[in-house]
Design a protein around this nucleic acid. Structure first.
Lengths: 199, 199
DNA sequence: GTCTATAAATGGATAGAC
DNA sequence: GTCTATCCATTTATAGAC
């Protein structure tokens, strides 16, 4: 099954739902969800509005599908991190995994990070995100007990600063095929752990 | 002249423009600019829409006024930083000043950081913001030459990571009168410069 | 699976009375 | 300075033909 937006069923023209979703999310991130109209989405896909609504049931369904994708990926990394031993290893795995998800699922995560809670769908996604944040804070507190993370910063504040930096990726990182993703991920972890000051 | 939203002209009821602006920006940040209707703004101020338009000429003017306030404050800190001597001192002043502006002008800066460039007003503000970012990157490059800031990170990336962390304040810091602002500012500079790792 | 046409509701903004 | 009433463009979504 294709997730690239290019239809795969042999001989059949037109979009599948994933292709419609990818095009819509691209526009949502370009102009913001609220400022993007279904006319714009249809034009972007070179479809009429009637044809667009053949693939999806509502504008909000597009948002819901994208948010579930982003949250599923982040929660997956969190679940995988639980398999590791000490807090330091779990935190490092989580930081790496989060940057990886941000880069790989940039469109859907970008959408997630801009939510304001204007509908039931948005509020449900924000709840799931808060749950994720709470788990990260717990992990940081544990790593502080271990002596891995500095103890002079409140774990909640540390978690927000860490993900404030990581999440800013959605505002400036644009994959360009140059393969610089791993380098930027490594740089972010360096700065998050050791700071900007010259050693 | 009051900037608190509470009218000051003796005996005269009703709002001045600043009061209307403050109420509107509060709603813009709560729901997003595009998702906020002028009906909502009027209801929030306990005014009719007709009365609301007596104080301002358009929804976009409210946005423009708020963005100018945010950008003016940030550009002011940048201008003041130029009075200092070496790059290290100027960068430290700028980091402190930026956190201070973020906290003091939280509503208008929050609005600025969420822009998507959907209109001429938004694009002009984004241009001013890019100019600010370019100056920060220059300053970081200079501090790298001085040996103050680590040289193994690209100055543009370092600038984005730094302000990614600082700007995240708009997503979680809520002044509560407890006077914890200076503490949080100091913590952010500690983490930005020396990292989260236990010393 | 796509199209045109249109329904139904909402949005920004204005008119004119008080 | 505020109100009610209204205009007109836009928006989400559906109907029904091909």
């Amino acid at each position: 099954m294709s997730t690239s937006g290019v239809p795969t069923r042999r001989g059949r023209p037109g979009y599948d739902q994933q292709g419609v979703l990818d095009g819509a999310v691209e526009l949502f991130n370009l102009h913001g969800y609220d400022a993007t109209t279904m006319d714009m989405v249809a034009a972007h896909l070179k479809l009429s509005k009637g044809a667009l609504y053949h693939h999806i049931s509502s504008k909000e369904q597009l948002l819901e599908l994208a948010l579930d994708r982003a949250l599923g990926a982040l929660e997956g990394v969190l679940a995988d991190s639980r398999k590791l031993g000490d807090a330091a290893a779990r935190l490092e795995f989580l930081m790496n995994g989060a940057v990886d998800v941000l880069a790989r699922e940039l469109p859907s995560v970008t959408l997630l990070l801009r939510l304001r809670g204007n509908s039931a769908v948005e509020r449900a996604a924000l709840d799931r995100r808060r749950e994720f944040d709470a788990r990260v804070t717990e992990l940081i507190a544990e790593a502080q007990s271990d002596g891995t993370i500095r103890r002079d910063i409140d774990p909640g504040a540390a978690s927000r600063m860490l993900f404030g930096m990581l999440n800013s990726l959605t505002e400036w990182y644009r994959p360009d095929g140059s393969g610089d993703g791993p380098r930027i991920a490594a740089d972010m972890l360096t700065v998050a752990l050791d700071g900007l000051r010259a050693p």
